[in-house]
Simulated scan of single mutants.
Amino acid sequence: MQPQFAESANRNRDITINIRAQQAQRDLIDRAAEALGKNRSDFMLETACREAETVLLDRRLFMLEEEKFHQFMELLDAPPSGNENLRKVLTTKAPWE
């Protein structure tokens, strides 16, 4: 999934964002950006936008009538039904272990 606000290299940017960081933080960001073949600004902007989208997408609002809300909560609180395939996946040792 491509972030909605991903910047292309030839797109003009007209807003400046300034932040202060510790030397170790900047060095870490620079190493990560270099590992991806990006400059610091591109790396930081893409990473910040991706995280911002994740935060906003994780927010959910459920509006239900009281009776439907109680039914919904009962379903969430009920133990999961048996699922043999899921049980097999969760109990199989990973190949790297």
Rank of each mutant, 00 (worst) to 15 (best):
F69V: 00
L86Y: 11
A35P: 06
R31A: 15
P79R: 08
L64I: 10
D42Y: 10
N18H: 11
F43E: 02
R60T: 06
M44D: 01
I29S: 04
Q71W: 11
R11F: 00
T16Y: 11
T16V: 13
N85R: 15
M1A: 11
E51K: 05
L36R: 11
R59A: 08
Q71D: 13
A94S: 08
L86M: 12
I19W: 03
L45R: 09
T54F: 03
L75N: 06
R31M: 12
T16K: 15
L61T: 15
N10E: 15
N10V: 12
R60L: 03
L90A: 12
A24L: 12
A48N: 05
R31D: 14
T91N: 14
L86W: 09
L90M: 14
L86R: 12
A94L: 06
R40H: 08
Q2R: 15
A32T: 04
T92K: 13
E65T: 14
A94W: 05
V55G: 05
F69W: 08
D27T: 06
D30G: 00
A78N: 00
A24W: 13
T54W: 02
F69Y: 08
I29M: 10
K68F: 09
A32D: 05
E51H: 09
R87K: 15
G82C: 05
D77S: 09
P95T: 12
S81Y: 02
L75H: 05
W96N: 07
D42H: 08
T16H: 13
A35N: 03
G82E: 14
D77G: 07
D58G: 15
R59K: 14
K68P: 03
L36S: 05
L56P: 01
Q71F: 10
L45S: 01
R26M: 07
D27S: 09
M73S: 04
R87L: 15
D77N: 09
N85C: 09
A9W: 03
Q23D: 08
L28N: 11
A33D: 03
D14H: 09
A9E: 02
A94H: 12
I19V: 14
D30N: 06
N83Q: 13
A78S: 06
F72S: 02
L28K: 04
I17F: 12
R50F: 00
K88H: 10
E66T: 14
K68W: 04
I17Y: 11
A78K: 00
I19N: 01
M63I: 14
G82Q: 10
R20Q: 09
